[in-house]
Write a protein that binds this DNA or RNA. Structure first.
Length: 206
DNA sequence: CTGACGATTCACT
DNA sequence: GTGAATCGTCAGC
């Protein structure tokens, strides 16, 4: 099912303690879904790290464990999808060991496969750089909804893979996270990673 | 049970 | 730059 040359990331990639490092290393990796026989994939060009219990910007701040946040306490490599503003579905991948609620939000992709399907799902006419720009658009283009929360990204029809492509270190930028002003001092942390100059990267901040 | 609100996006001024 | 859309989640009563 996977394109030749794509390798699904192993559990060990996610099963590490430094979520900030994982967020940075996810740049250049490929998010793939094949729902209803429709294959869509894009290269990750923007991520944000959410550092669990000690991060005021995280849903799991203070170890808050509820029905919604429960998947973040689960196995590394699990999808955490939730509804934001009653409209947008945001896709994250859970990292670190069980009971440590780390997660990385995928904020933007560069489309690789299934652009026609993405256009259909987003009801757009032209494949411009807004197609998979911003976390709400990423999920919409790939067909990701809250029903997919808890899915294993190693053994399902939604995975993160890699190929030979590598993002140059000099092309990676780190900034503060978007839309987390409520997090006080933690809003200032450089936990957002982007591929500089990529047209699919969201936001106006550098 | 109720109310306030959000890891956003888009149309409009 | 401003504001609406829209609903699940969660704290509080």
């Amino acid at each position: 099912m996977l394109e030749k040359g794509y390798t699904v990331l192993d559990r060990s990639f996610y099963d590490r303690s430094d979520v900030v490092k994982i967020a940075r290393q996810l740049l250049g990796k490929i998010l793939i879904t094949w729902f209803d026989g429709q294959f869509t994939a894009g290269r990750i060009v923007e991520t944000e790290a959410y550092n669990g219990a000690v991060d005021r910007a995280s849903h799991a701040y203070g170890g808050r464990r509820t029905a919604r946040t429960e998947v973040m306490f689960g196995r590394p490599g699990t999808a955490y999808v939730y509804l934001c503003y009653g409209i947008h579905h945001l896709f994250n991948v859970v990292t670190n060991k069980v009971d440590v609620p780390h997660a990385v939000l995928v904020r933007a992709l560069e489309p690789l496969h299934g652009v026609d399907v993405m256009l259909d799902r987003t009801r757009k006419q032209v494949p411009d750089n807004t197609l998979t720009r911003g976390p709400g658009n990423v999920s919409k283009a790939l067909g990701i909804y809250t029903i997919h929360t808890g899915m294993d990204l190693l053994e399902s029809n939604m995975v993160i893979a890699e190929d030979q492509y590598m993002v140059k270190k000099s092309a990676i930028g780190a900034t503060t996270r978007i839309g987390v002003d409520y997090a006080g001092p933690d809003a200032l942390l450089p936990y957002r990673f982007i591929v500089k100059d990529n047209p699919y990267v969201s936001g106006k901040r550098k």
